[in-house]
């Protein structure tokens, strides 16, 4: 690790000031589980590190009847272990539990993972499936972006220079809804070779009133499998298999490495979409 100046602001406002003052020289430290390994390997050498860890207000997770809020600095474990989330939106703790390992979940943050936008991270899929809104603070004040507009490309998000992700808002799903996250872990790192989060709301007839499917690990950025969603809206569980065949439609470029080719990832996306949707519908019923 090369030397750097360390700042630990106590408030979001002072953090923002530092972020804007140091610009490209600075890196924002949340849980540190992406940044610190890169710095240790000397693959990243920021001259300034701004540690958000001391900002208490960004760690809260609340699960209200209308809205679920997750502070950007809430740990994966805070979501995994939240008392109310299993009943309000089980997809969130289910996804959290699939990330890394216990020690990583204790330290890694939801906001850090989302802002990092690793193409194989788990949260982006689930945030897409839950149609999450991301709150962003920046030099020009605050704004909110939908998850579906946030993940742009490999490690590239809609976050602009000087901006910081501050929190996540999700509309609390209605009673007749359900979600599921299905993933294959890369055998070494545990990252998703492919991961699919599905969320459905059923109508009175048991058909899908709304469907959202988020896919990670497959393309340079996590994406909504719109073709699957379109094929399933208004349909019931019998239509899941056919709809899932479209899980990789429209992907122009696949992630590939020696662990898994693009073809295989696309196949996994289809298989896991079917599994996740089936489970989601079962849970919604």
């Amino acid at each position: 690790m090369t030397p750097f100046d360390y700042h630990a602001p106590k408030t979001l406002r002072s953090a923002m000031r530092l972020v804007q003052a140091f610009g490209d020289d600075a890196k924002v430290l949340a849980g540190g589980h992406s940044l610190i390994p890169s710095m240790k390997l000397r693959l990243a050498a920021p001259s300034v590190v701004i540690d958000l860890g001391g900002i208490a207000g960004l760690k809260r997770v609340t699960a209200g009847n209308e809205t679920i809020t997750i502070g950007a600095l809430a740990t994966h474990y805070a979501v995994e272990s939240h008392r109310l989330l299993p009943s309000k939106c089980s997809l969130l703790p289910e996804t959290a539990a699939e990330i890394g390992d216990a020690q990583v979940r204790n330290r890694g943050t939801v906001g850090g993972s989302i802002a990092h936008a690793d193409p194989a991270a788990d949260w982006p899929a689930t945030m897409l499936a839950l149609d999450a809104q991301f709150d962003i603070g920046g030099p020009d004040g605050e704004r909110a972006v939908a998850a579906s507009d946030f993940f742009v490309d490999l490690f590239i998000t809609d976050l602009q220079p000087g901006e910081v992700l501050t929190g996540i808002r999700i509309a609390t799903p209605p009673e007749n809804s359900g979600g599921a996250y299905v993933k294959m872990r890369q055998s070494a790192s545990g990252f998703a070779l492919a991961g699919v989060a599905a969320h459905v709301t059923l109508d009175d007839a048991g058909n899908c009133a709304s469907v959202a499917v988020g896919v990670t690990g497959v393309a340079p950025a996590a994406y909504r499998a719109r073709a699957v969603e379109d094929a399933l809206v208004g349909q019931g569980i019998d239509a899941v298999a056919d709809a899932s065949a479209h899980a990789a439609d429209g992907v122009e470029e696949f992630q590939e490495d020696h662990h898994a080719s693009g073809d295989y990832r696309a196949h996994l996306a289809r298989v896991f979409t079917q599994q996740a949707l089936s489970q989601a519908i079962e849970r919604a019923a």
Binding site: L43, P119, D153, L154, I156, Q186, F191, P220, Q255, E256
Partner: peptide, 15 residues
């Protein structure tokens, strides 16, 4: 970068 980031290589080059 070759030893630790291989899963990113193809994606990064194409990006």
């Amino acid at each position: 970068i070759a030893a630790v980031g291989q899963r990113m290589h193809a994606g990064a080059a194409r990006l």
